[in-house]
Simulated assay, not measured.
Amino acid sequence: MPFPIRFAALAAPLLMLFYGIMRYVDGRDGDRGNGAAWDVGHTAFFVAFVLFAVLAVNLHRVVPVVARWQRILRDVALGAALVGAAAFLWVTFTDLFRAVPTGLPDAAMIGLPVLFQLGMLTLLGQLVAARLLPVWSPLTMVFGFALIAVNLDLLPFASVVILSGLSPLATARRSPRPVGP
């Protein structure tokens, strides 16, 4: 896999793991927020989602397409992943800067981040269909994000699960050629 894919597939989950650890450190006094651990952890989470967006863009470049519907699916998946990543970034930004209101209704705060997972699942699924990725990889990544949805305190464990799901991308030396526009 190209370097941006390998790097983002490794660094993004590791930054999420760091964020999860910082959440525990920040919460040791019984209160989360308004402290150095909170700020450092949220900054790491923000950078993680920038890298997840980089990962999505680069996966989009290497997903092989033969038929028009595959190209459309690939493009829609990228759009969903980027909108979802932007939602994660916005929520994290408003957590860091509490004076900035989210401006999003609760349904959007829940629904938009799900687009990231659907987009990534689709892009990874297309790589599975092309036999460039094992079938367990996207399923493991989605399971990790589902753990976070169940309980944010599971974030350190979920990050390791996501890392394991993306590990074939992080360790693959075989490099498919980017196809199409």
Rank of each mutant, 00 (worst) to 15 (best):
residue 3 F to C: 00
residue 4 P to M: 06
residue 5 I to Q: 00
residue 5 I to N: 00
residue 6 R to K: 14
residue 6 R to V: 09
residue 13 P to G: 02
residue 13 P to D: 02
residue 14 L to R: 01
residue 15 L to S: 10
residue 16 M to L: 15
residue 18 F to K: 01
residue 19 Y to N: 15
residue 19 Y to K: 05
residue 19 Y to E: 12
residue 22 M to K: 03
residue 26 D to C: 12
residue 27 G to L: 09
residue 28 R to H: 08
residue 28 R to A: 14
residue 28 R to G: 11
residue 28 R to L: 14
residue 29 D to Q: 09
residue 33 G to P: 05
residue 33 G to M: 07
residue 35 G to P: 03
residue 36 A to R: 10
residue 37 A to P: 02
residue 44 A to R: 04
residue 46 F to G: 10
residue 46 F to E: 07
residue 47 V to G: 03
residue 47 V to F: 12
residue 49 F to G: 01
residue 49 F to V: 02
residue 49 F to W: 13
residue 51 L to G: 06
residue 59 L to K: 06
residue 60 H to D: 10
residue 60 H to K: 07
residue 62 V to T: 06
residue 63 V to E: 03
residue 64 P to D: 00
residue 69 W to D: 13
residue 70 Q to K: 00
residue 70 Q to W: 00
residue 71 R to G: 04
residue 72 I to P: 00
residue 72 I to W: 13
residue 74 R to A: 11
residue 75 D to N: 15
residue 77 A to W: 00
residue 77 A to V: 01
residue 77 A to T: 02
residue 78 L to P: 08
residue 78 L to E: 04
residue 79 G to S: 04
residue 82 L to R: 09
residue 83 V to N: 07
residue 88 F to M: 14
residue 89 L to V: 02
residue 92 T to G: 07
residue 92 T to K: 01
residue 93 F to V: 14
residue 94 T to D: 08
residue 95 D to W: 11
residue 96 L to P: 03
residue 99 A to F: 14
residue 100 V to W: 14
residue 100 V to A: 13
residue 100 V to P: 07
residue 101 P to H: 08
residue 101 P to A: 10
residue 102 T to S: 15
residue 104 L to M: 15
residue 104 L to F: 12
residue 104 L to N: 03
residue 106 D to H: 07
residue 107 A to G: 00
residue 113 P to F: 07
residue 113 P to I: 04
residue 114 V to A: 14
residue 114 V to I: 15
residue 116 F to W: 12
residue 117 Q to V: 14
residue 118 L to P: 04
residue 118 L to A: 15
residue 121 L to H: 08
residue 121 L to Y: 13
residue 122 T to G: 05
residue 123 L to Y: 05
residue 123 L to I: 05
residue 123 L to H: 06
residue 125 G to I: 01
residue 125 G to N: 03
residue 126 Q to A: 05
residue 132 L to Y: 00
residue 133 L to K: 06
residue 138 P to I: 03
residue 138 P to K: 04
residue 142 V to H: 05
residue 142 V to Q: 06
residue 143 F to V: 13
residue 143 F to S: 14
residue 143 F to G: 06
residue 145 F to M: 10
residue 146 A to M: 13
residue 146 A to N: 11
residue 146 A to D: 12
residue 147 L to Y: 04
residue 149 A to F: 12
residue 150 V to E: 11
residue 150 V to F: 11
residue 152 L to A: 12
residue 154 L to Y: 15
residue 159 S to M: 09
residue 160 V to L: 15
residue 160 V to R: 06
residue 161 V to K: 10
residue 163 L to P: 07
residue 164 S to W: 14
residue 164 S to E: 02
residue 164 S to A: 15
residue 165 G to F: 10
residue 167 S to P: 01
residue 168 P to A: 10
residue 168 P to R: 10
residue 169 L to E: 00
residue 169 L to Q: 01
residue 170 A to T: 05
residue 170 A to Y: 02
residue 173 R to D: 10
residue 175 S to G: 01
residue 176 P to I: 09
residue 176 P to D: 08
residue 178 P to N: 07
residue 178 P to R: 02
